[in-house]
Amino acid sequence: MTATQSVAAIGRRVLPGGNTLTVGIVILAAWVLVALLCPWIAPFDPISQDADATLLPPNPAHPFGTDNFGRDILSRVMWGTRIDLQICFIGVAFPFVLGTIVGAVSGYVGGALDTLLMRLIDIVLAFPFLVLMLAIIAILGPGISSFYIAMAMVGWVSYARLVRSQVLSLKHRDFILAARSLGYSHGRILFFHLLPNALASSIVFAMSDCVLVLLSGASVSYLGLGVQPPVAEWGVMVAEGQGFITTAWWITTFPGLAIVALAMGFSFLADGLGDKLGARP
């Protein structure tokens, strides 16, 4: 997550008091608002084509210009927010939940189960991230749900390792021994005492992971394996505009900037949360 960290580091230098948490929340809240309000605030329909207004550069009627089908880029970026936020959320939530449970159980139970799960993680990690994802999507067939499934199958390992290492270091702490001496069940100790303490760093990691998921979503869509045209999604838009990069820069630039802006929001949030929760990403 070096990219995330350096964005946050720049933010720290620019922002007085390093209040990255607030900035992150503001950026994300702005995007959520756009996603919620896009039927009302988007000036045009994102998929309706207009043969008379193709490849218009930014102008008062189309502030971000139009693409080769005459679709309004601004409206498409706004509508794209819905899909991209969804990609971030679902793409992180599945691996987060799966990885946390596997990591927590593995660390707490230990022994043969732990060894088995760790070897499984090693196997998943042995493949390059994107290659494995693309392979899974190719097997399942292109589409956004395939992307989510692939993300869950590949992304959980980071969370599992993170949570497991936390659980391992926490489980010999006195308050866990205290919980055992008070007669608490294993489930209670694991879920009420260990997990709340182990989660801080994986929550922070999840925020930076959103950036990664967003970019993978965009790349997968770009390769034509994720969100299918004509749906407005930033990655798809970048892909579609690449043929016109020399003649109509606005087609790729604005969705690209949107990706950067959303990613920055998550970076700031991760950094701020890291300070707040006492865990660094």
Partner: peptide, 10 residues
């Protein structure tokens, strides 16, 4: 326990 801080869930 010995360590009053670490024996309580933070």
């Amino acid at each position: 326990f010995q360590d009053p801080f670490s024996s309580l869930n933070p």
